[in-house]
Design a protein around this nucleic acid. Structure first.
Lengths: 269, 269
DNA sequence: GCGACTTTGTGCCTGCGTTCACAAATGGAT
DNA sequence: ATCCATTTGTGAACGCAGGCACAAAGTCGC
């Protein structure tokens, strides 16, 4: 993947990555003086990577809850989430101490607390810009997986799309972006436009007051420091997989016992 | 984002983040004995995060090339890619020494070398499983952004879709997955199914010999150690943004001079 | 041909995130 | 009531990636 982490700072692309980030340069040093660890400041201390994992834990926990599981140990949860149990406990410790030693965690409590930390207790309204193939798919998700993220506005430049409802929401012209985003309290913008339009769209979203952006366009967006951009880049994901395919092929070639060699060199066929 | 990095190892989800990467636990220590730095082993030494960035550099370079730029300095390229110039040079050093001191890099050379490292010199055939909204969008990309990743097979369980071409490729029943993947030399599988089907589909892909998987389903896939999974998880991406929205709101609240406090504590309203 | 300037490539330091390992805490058994 | 088994929460060590800063190397002008 390749997730554009970082907060503006002039240019700061990725991070899946990673992480997809792993994403390019992490948040980086912020200029603010390190104040006393206020209760409200705790959130700041949570590493971005831990936040991503908390979201995964939340999903696993929700599934557990639906299956009627009431209590779970860090070991069980870590296996289900695919992480080291120590890491899981440390991640949960960022949220607070809600476990019972010798027993484990109460699923419902954990869900509540993670939702609180992730800010999922209130809705965040979403606007999707660019109603092509991907935009359609996104709009039709209707509220995004897991809910809490209702799509309330769609934008495009194509006059033929205006007013036509996609996933129940009519498409507006992009020129109305400022006004519509303001009146519908959009806090998250999703860019699903062709690459050349992405930067301009991004700037219009920012002008409209949107401070969090999810970018599907294969472009490195340049944004002000106070705007948070995350990037989902299919091409980068594919290329990373390609890298691993190639590496794997190399390994097989160089590890194979019956590969023709001269002085240790593998002879290409 | 939240990109599932890691290589199987029983469970290893995201990395997303960063990636999602952060993503979750990075590649992690591999059990293999550290052999002498074989030429072919160099690829192994490249950090996953650097690989993700190389893919970004490649795109920027391609754009440069199209604009007729012949030579570029690390400073220029780093600005365009949104990274620190030192980091960029270090990333490029993983690829090799192809720069000219005092001058910069020849764009065409850099493109070639990065493509070589990423294994983009040969095609990697892609199969998409799950032809819903997202599957349609993916199939219609037709060869995926940047080419080099031709989609050669589509699968679903819905009988109504069988044989119908989407993006020029007819849909096959998932029961044919092993046979079709083998004959069409699929090396990358894309999972775009509903969550409950994802794990089973994953296992069928693995049985069919596919060792690299891009997973769009919001599920933590359990795979053998030799399978590489990357995850694109919209819900996780949204929730990370939500976290930042909430954090930002907190900052405003706690930085505001007229917030009621007692002994520095913010009084919740 | 020589010197000054530019830019690469990299050794070293720093900081962050992961992992280990254990003390503290809790429940249940005796 | 006490002891044992279990599991959390976290201090500390470790390792890796990022960033700085400079030496090496090469170009251009004179």
């Amino acid at each position: 993947m390749a997730v554009q982490r970082g907060r503006g700072r002039g240019p700061v692309p990725n991070g899946p990555a990673d992480a997809v980030t792993e994403p390019m340069s992490a948040v980086g040093p912020n200029g603010r003086p390190v104040s006393a660890p206020d209760v409200r400041e705790r959130a700041r201390a949570i590493p971005e990577a831990a936040v991503a994992r908390l979201a995964v834990y939340l999903r696993v926990l929700s599934a557990m809850s639906e299956q009627g599981v009431g209590t779970i140990s860090s070991e069980e949860l870590s296996v289900a989430a695919g992480v080291n149990s120590a890491k899981l406990r440390k991640d949960l410790s960022y949220v607070g101490s809600y476990g019972t030693r010798g027993v484990g965690y109460e699923v419902s409590v954990l869900i509540e607390e993670i939702e609180r930390i992730l800010g999922l207790t209130s809705n965040h309204y979403v606007a999707v810009v660019g109603i092509g193939n991907l935009g359609h798919a996104l709009a039709n998700y209707g509220g995004f997986p897991g809910r809490g993220f209702p799509v309330v506005a769609l934008f495009d430049v194509d006059e033929d799309l205006m007013g036509i409802p996609v996933g129940g929401i009519p498409v507006n012209h992009i020129d109305e972006i400022a006004q519509v985003c303001a009146s519908r309290e959009v806090s998250i913008g999703v860019i699903a436009t062709p690459p050349p339009a992405a930067q301009a769209v991004c700037e219009r979203l920012v002008s409209a007051g949107v401070r969090c952006i999810l970018n599907f366009a294969p472009v490195v967006l340049q944004v002000p420091d106070d705007v948070e951009v995350r990037k989902v880049d299919l091409a980068v994901e594919m290329q990373i997989l390609s890298f691993h395919v190639a590496r794997r092929a190399d390994e097989v070639a160089s590890n194979g016992a019956d590969v023709p060699r001269v002085d240790g060199m593998v002879i290409p066929r």
